[in-house]
Amino acid sequence: MADAHAEHGEVQIDESLKTHVCSGGQFFGVYIALLFLTIVTVGVSYFDFGDFNMLIAMAIASCKAALVMAIFMHLRWDTPINNIAFIGSLIFLSLLFLFTVADFSTRSDMEPVHGIPAEVNNAFDWKSK
């Protein structure tokens, strides 16, 4: 009965779906900004800022990532739940990095590991083959 009814096509038009559309200029502006930041990061890499090299490169990469996420990926106009899902993953990612960095940046010079058979210690040493 119900199926027969649907088959005969009582069709309702749902007009409620409205998505935000960015302007072409907006996308082009972001594209130019991304190219500019790429040139900056390549240019900066020719100078040596010591320990800050990595920090500077990651800061520029984060700016680029933020642009892509907010505009290209539309997160700025997306629903809160999608923002929470994705930004949440980045927060957990930063937890992973926080503890890893805290560990490795506070270690003093490592001594070679003793008491491990040489073939294990050298397993990945291409010269020992």
């Binding site: 390549v42 990595m54 500077i56 520029i60 990469a61 990532a65 892509v68 996420m69 290209f72 990926m73």
Partner: peptide, 18 residues
């Protein structure tokens, strides 16, 4: 596609630049 781009944005400086 954008997330593939996003990953490359971090891979490129880490491997090639610094």
């Amino acid at each position: 596609w954008h997330i593939v781009d996003l990953i490359w944005i971090f891979l490129f400086p880490l491997l090639y630049l610094v």
